[in-house]
Computed example of a mutant assay.
Amino acid sequence: MDFDLLDEAYERLHRTGPEYRGWLSNHGPMTVEALARHGHGARIHRWLDAYLPRLDDLPGTRDAITDWRAALGDPARIGDWLAYFDRALEEQPWPEVLGRWWPRLLPGLAAGATHGVIRVGHAVRALRAGSTPTRLTELGQALAYWAARWQAIPGLPGVTTGQLGAAADLLDVATGLPGRAEVAVALAGIPRIDDQTGGIRDRLGRLPDLPDWPASVAALRPAHTPDEARKLLGELVHRAALDYLRFAHGEPVMLVHAVTAPTAVLRTLPALDPALWAPSLAAAWAATAAITAGYAPTVGTTPSVVPNTSPEEALHRAAEHGDAHVIKLADAVADVYLHTGDERVLGAVAHAARLV
């Protein structure tokens, strides 16, 4: 991993805000971590030179956060959340800050179209490789973004939707899932909303009106041990990557998050108390199910792609392509291939590169 180049990239990016042009997510920190992780550090600064001009400046503060429940999910307070987590990480070790805030943020996994948790996952992976001031800052900015955009997924077990303030008080995240289905069966049973228009907030808002949604989001079998939760999360990422090949023609960018959001959760597990692994599975499953319901077409296809023969080739293809979503998808499926040996998932990168 190109550690020095990653820290240089973080320094450049930490002058920018987590969003731009309204509420488009800043993909820079996630992308440079993936490039650095896989030996493509030489591309980072050139990639940033092209990407940075589109970003907004780092937002300023308004008032110090004293009641975190009241500020949760308030994007107007992104600057205040940034300052809050900067202080928290100065005062306490990062695993303690993460461990305290993970169960608070987990029910709002939809934050920023799941980019909150995805950015946290990349930051945690970088910190587990070695702690530096810039990586601590990155974790703080990632957590701040998640907190400011906190949004519950309708039907997530253990979470009452409705008024944000009420949901924000729920720290007792689901301890598991009530269903019986294996991952592949549960994913195959996800219904689709009829009106697949608008942004993710619009589409999530239509899920409660979908008759089969409550049963579908609760269908996955529970994890009875932390190791089982980790195994099921791995299977979820694997199956979501294969589903990308079938359904990405419907929405090639957003469906990437059905893969990368549970990947981020999976990567964060080693830094968390194992007691949090089962609720983490529940939230990751709900996120993938919601993205599938909101963006995947009802009819899949079999794309005619020439699969990459190795994760290195897939990552090289993604780095050459340059799109942040293609790079992050390649990063995720490289992990899947490492653990499963399933070459089919590598084809998702070529498919994404063609569609995005």
Rank of each mutant, 00 (worst) to 15 (best):
D194H: 09
P95S: 02
G176P: 13
D49W: 10
A36K: 01
A241W: 00
T298M: 08
V336T: 09
R267L: 11
T175M: 14
W101E: 02
E343C: 04
A258I: 02
P107I: 11
D80A: 00
L106I: 01
R267W: 06
H321V: 11
A324R: 08
D209F: 05
L255D: 03
I65S: 00
E228R: 15
G234M: 12
R135C: 04
A324F: 07
P262Y: 14
R21Y: 09
D74C: 01
A166H: 14
A88W: 12
A174H: 04
L106E: 02
Q141K: 08
W213I: 07
P297M: 02
R230N: 12
M30C: 07
T61L: 12
P103E: 14
L220N: 05
A42Q: 05
F3W: 08
V185D: 13
A166W: 12
T309Y: 11
K328C: 00
A148V: 03
H257D: 06
L5E: 05
D243N: 10
E343S: 10
R15I: 08
P29V: 07
G189W: 00
Q151W: 02
Q163L: 10
E90W: 04
S25D: 13
A219R: 02
D86M: 10
E320N: 03
T309L: 08
L177T: 03
W285T: 01
T16S: 06
I200R: 07
P252R: 09
I193V: 07
Q141N: 15
R203D: 05
M254Q: 08
Y10Q: 12
P211H: 05
H27L: 04
Y20R: 02
D49T: 15
V32Y: 06
D74K: 00
P208M: 08
R239V: 11
A113C: 08
L52F: 15
V97D: 02
Y244F: 13
G60R: 07
H325P: 01
Y337T: 10
W150F: 00
Y84W: 00
D342K: 06
E11N: 10
V117Y: 15
H321M: 07
A296G: 13
L35W: 04
L245S: 06
L48I: 14
L355C: 04
D202A: 11
D194V: 04
L338D: 12
F85D: 03
R246L: 10
R246M: 11
G39C: 07
A71G: 14
W213N: 09
L346P: 09
A215V: 13
I200L: 11
W23T: 12
E19Q: 09
R203M: 11
M1R: 08
V356P: 05
A148I: 00
P252S: 09
R21V: 15
V265Y: 06
A111E: 05
P222E: 09
M254Y: 07
T134S: 15
S131I: 11
E138Q: 09
G205S: 05
H238E: 13
